[in-house]
Each structure stands twice: as C-alpha cells, then as structure tokens.
Amino acid sequence: MSTLFSKIIEREVPADIVYEDDQVLAFHDINPQAPTHILIIPKKPIATLNDLTEEDQALVGRLPLIAAKLAKQLGFADEGYRVVMNCNENGGQTVYHIHMHLMGGRRFTWPAG
C-alpha cells in the first residue's frame, strides 16, 4: 500500500530531509507542533506498531538512536525533547507507516493531548 511516507522515500513527494541512511529517513513535519518537529521513519513499510515482528527489532531500535543524534545536532538535547509514536486512529496515527515524532525547542506539558 502506497502512503505519503513511501512517496517521500521514493522522492515522488518533496520533503525537507535532515537525515538519511540505507534504512531510515528523517524529515521536517509539514504541520509542526514544536519549533523543531521531525519525523523519523524506517524505509521498510510497516503500517502500525501492531505489525512489528521480531525481525524488525533492530530497525525500529535505530529510530530513538537517530532521534537522540538529531536532537544533539540541532542543539536541544540538553534542554530536553519529546519523542512520540502513535498507533491506529485512537492513538492519533494518521499515516499508516510507523514513524517517530522528534519535537524540541519548547517546554512540553503532561499529560499529552
């Protein structure tokens, strides 16, 4: 199934890419919820967290490592940041290709929305 994210991976849709390797792509969110809001996605299409398998463990484990690396590079790691993954409609997922939100540059409150 083709999603917006698969089209970004294939360069069919433009994105402001900040990181890429052979397994992962990261780009600025088009609807930012913080001064810096980056989406970190695996290039392998996995619809939801519920669809993960044991073989996806290393791939998905890369996402928070890349989030921390980007937070350091972008200068807000020491002040703090938020990472979020949503699952299905009630969890707030709107694109059915797993992704991690990296948000920084402001104070976040709890509980989340």
Rank of each mutant, 00 (worst) to 15 (best):
S2R: 15
T3L: 06
T3Y: 07
L4I: 14
L4G: 00
F5G: 00
F5L: 06
K7C: 05
I8H: 09
I8L: 11
E12S: 14
P14K: 10
A15Q: 02
D16R: 14
D16S: 14
I17A: 02
I17F: 02
I17N: 01
I17D: 09
Y19A: 07
Y19P: 06
E20K: 08
E20P: 11
D22V: 05
L25W: 02
A26R: 07
F27L: 05
F27W: 06
H28K: 15
H28D: 00
H28M: 14
I30N: 08
N31R: 07
P32E: 04
P32M: 00
Q33A: 09
A34H: 07
A34L: 02
P35G: 00
H37S: 02
H37E: 07
I40D: 01
I40R: 01
I41C: 07
I41V: 15
I41D: 02
K43T: 05
K44V: 11
K44I: 04
A47Y: 10
A47C: 06
L52K: 04
L52A: 11
L52N: 10
E54P: 05
E54F: 05
D56W: 04
Q57M: 10
A58M: 11
A58Y: 11
A58Q: 15
L59I: 09
V60E: 02
V60L: 03
V60N: 09
G61E: 00
P64W: 02
L65S: 12
I66V: 14
A67W: 00
A67H: 05
K69G: 12
K69L: 12
K69R: 15
A71I: 07
Q73G: 12
G75E: 05
A77E: 15
A77G: 01
E79C: 04
G80C: 09
Y81A: 08
Y81L: 03
V83A: 13
V83Y: 05
V84Y: 03
M85Y: 05
C87H: 02
C87V: 13
C87F: 03
C87T: 15
N88H: 12
N88L: 14
N88T: 09
N90H: 07
G91E: 02
G92S: 04
G92N: 08
G92Q: 10
Q93S: 04
T94H: 10
T94Q: 10
T94V: 15
T94E: 13
V95T: 13
V95C: 06
Y96E: 12
Y96W: 13
H97M: 12
H101Q: 08
L102Q: 00
L102N: 00
G104K: 01
R106E: 05
R106Q: 13
P111C: 01
A112M: 13
